[in-house]
Nucleic acid binder design. Structure first.
Lengths: 336, 336
DNA sequence: AAAATGACAGAAAACGTTTTCGTAAAAAAG
DNA sequence: CTTTTTTACGAAAACGTTTTCTGTCATTTT
């Protein structure tokens, strides 16, 4: 908007455009006193360089994209917070895109990003991602991409995740040692690593303690909160209903709390509950909710840091980083 | 990244660069069949226009900035959600900046934005904003700026807010009709409209019901959660402690819940509570939290829509929109 | 004293688009 | 059969930077 540019500045100073540009970029070709003059005039006229001209010429946008399925999810909010923290500190701009758990949206977003609008992409896949075709296209073009949380199961992808298998395992184990004999697992549809790994942890724990696994105890949920609540109510009203529930994502735990209120099941007396979640108010819920909490803020920071290392070519050769951070299990009243 | 550009495309097609450009923009100067050829080739080679070249030439970035104090706040998350929804649908990109409730950060962010990186700005001020100097600079330059939630108290600013006075009034009234005789108000520091209006509503309600206003009942909180919790504990342990509390923001309500747990005060028996909040889990808290809930998602949508009207020059003349949406008061157990 | 170096600055090309302008050929109007 | 208009396209300028390439002195080295 500010229509003062290098040309205007150079006229004001009686210098050439190139000299002014060099002065502002602190080039050795310009004398100290000229630099000072230029800086002062730039300050005085409130010169702001045109980012597009600069990006066009330098083929650098100083911008990264964050692509996430939804934002109404504390996990992603915290992750974004971590990403922003690192990015702003590095002088980068952050573009955010929501895919609304929609593979089509995700695809078109990625496609747009190929135009060079950003120097790198941080992405958490939507649950119905099938092939990572678009993405591998990006990656093959040498474009820096870091996956976090919901990552593809391919060897060539740099990822930042949490120990999902372990989390699922320990959560299940905790329910078992609290006396549960029949544990249901609330999963989200799709075949993403996160979902699969958490469930495998759950299954492994069942096996370790000799609890037979029962397909009816695995509830596949969707993105429709009301539908999920009905599904959960259904399994809780079933003959041979579960006495323990492991929820693989936060919002399913919330739906479950509502379901229990409706059908008058008492947690933890009738049903013990634990959930993957970053809810700040977990300990204030009624009853307080036991959680496996991924370090979302740190995941965001790590992912962003890794991306910047890649952008700045500080990751050499064919090295592919796969960073795994630990979740913490916090037992509260819902599973005692 | 994709290094295929108009030049490459034009060579491939045996056309001039300008013709290809025109064809892609569906200009009337190009015949239908040539357009078809060009489109197909662009599709085939996966041509993605360089956004910087385009923005440089057209002086349009198709990007807006969202500047907010923090993201770990459901209000802002919902607002962003609304903004993104409108923006993505309009084909705009969204840059997000966090000021961390820091006036310095806010200033430098705004300054950077003057370079023309964005076509418009949506901003919610940080609590220690003093003068809106930087901002009025932007606005005076004819740059589209829309304020939401935390807005300056100046006539020339387009704003989207909620009826804060009314919310504060009704919340206080609700506490009074539930039997409270001594009501404290948790406010955040600073002199932003939101804070001031909510408090004025509170004071007006006190006056209406003949309750004397007491400066000790107004707790000025900071951004430090622990410090706030201590402040709240202090007033709750005081002789002549309040029997009702109105919290002006969500996080203070959370701190208060923790404070009450620590000093063993029972809500709502010993203390009735109501808070401005967008917490999704308000009804699941122990006890469920009465809230005045601003329509954050709609506020985001309205703000974005207004901004786009301004960008597209659909707001004529000196018209300044001041949109006010209604909050809803939901009484739950914490204030019964 | 001639040649080489260094310090400083300007001219101009380049980045990839968009858009104005110009101009052929074809179609329509006279 | 002209003349005008329309259609379809190309040449080139423009957007505001960055950077390479020159060039001019003045200073230092041979």
């Amino acid at each position: 908007m500010s229509s003062i540019n290098l040309k205007r500045l150079s006229e004001e100073l009686g210098l050439s455009i190139s000299s002014v540009s060099k002065a502002l970029r602190d080039s050795y070709e310009i004398s100290a006193e000229t630099k000072k003059r230029v800086m002062e005039m730039a300050e005085k006229l409130n010169y702001q360089p045109n980012p597009f001209a600069s990006s066009l010429r330098r083929k650098k946008s100083l911008t990264v994209a964050v692509v996430i399925p939804e934002i109404a999810n504390n996990y992603f909010v915290l992750a974004i917070n971590g990403i922003q923290t690192v990015a702003q500190q590095k002088g980068y701009h952050v573009l955010t895109y929501l895919t609304h758990e929609n593979a089509k949206d995700q695809e078109s977003t990625i496609k747009h990003l190929q135009g060079g609008r950003v120097d790198g992409v941080l992405i958490s896949l939507c649950s119905d991602t099938s092939t990572g075709e678009q993405l591998s296209e990006l990656q093959n073009a040498g474009f820096p991409v870091v996956f976090f949380d919901r990552v593809p199961d391919a060897p060539g992808c740099p990822t930042v995740t949490t120990d999902d298998f372990d989390g699922g395992f320990k959560a299940t184990e905790q329910l078992i040692t609290s006396g549960c004999k029949k544990i249901a697992y609330l999963r989200v549809s799709g075949y993403l690593s996160t979902t699969v790994n958490r469930m495998n942890g759950y299954l492994a724990a069942l096996q370790k303690y000799g609890i037979p696994q029962d397909p009816k105890m695995i509830v596949e949920c969707s993105n429709d909160d009301d539908a999920n609540q009905e599904l959960i109510k259904k399994i809780l009203k079933m003959r041979g209903r579960p006495d323990g529930i492991l929820s693989s994502v936060e919002k399913l735990a919330v739906s479950m709390y509502y379901a229990c209120t409706e059908i008058n099941l008492k947690i933890p007396k009738d049903l013990k509950v634990i959930s993957f979640s970053c809810l700040r108010t977990a300990s204030l819920l009624s009853p307080s909710l036991s959680t496996i909490t991924p370090p979302a803020f740190e995941i965001g920071k790590e992912a962003a840091s890794l991306l910047f290392r890649m952008i700045e070519k500080k990751v050499y050769g064919n090295r592919v980083d796969k960073i795994v951070l630990n979740s913490s299990l916090i037992q509260r009243n819902s599973s005692r």
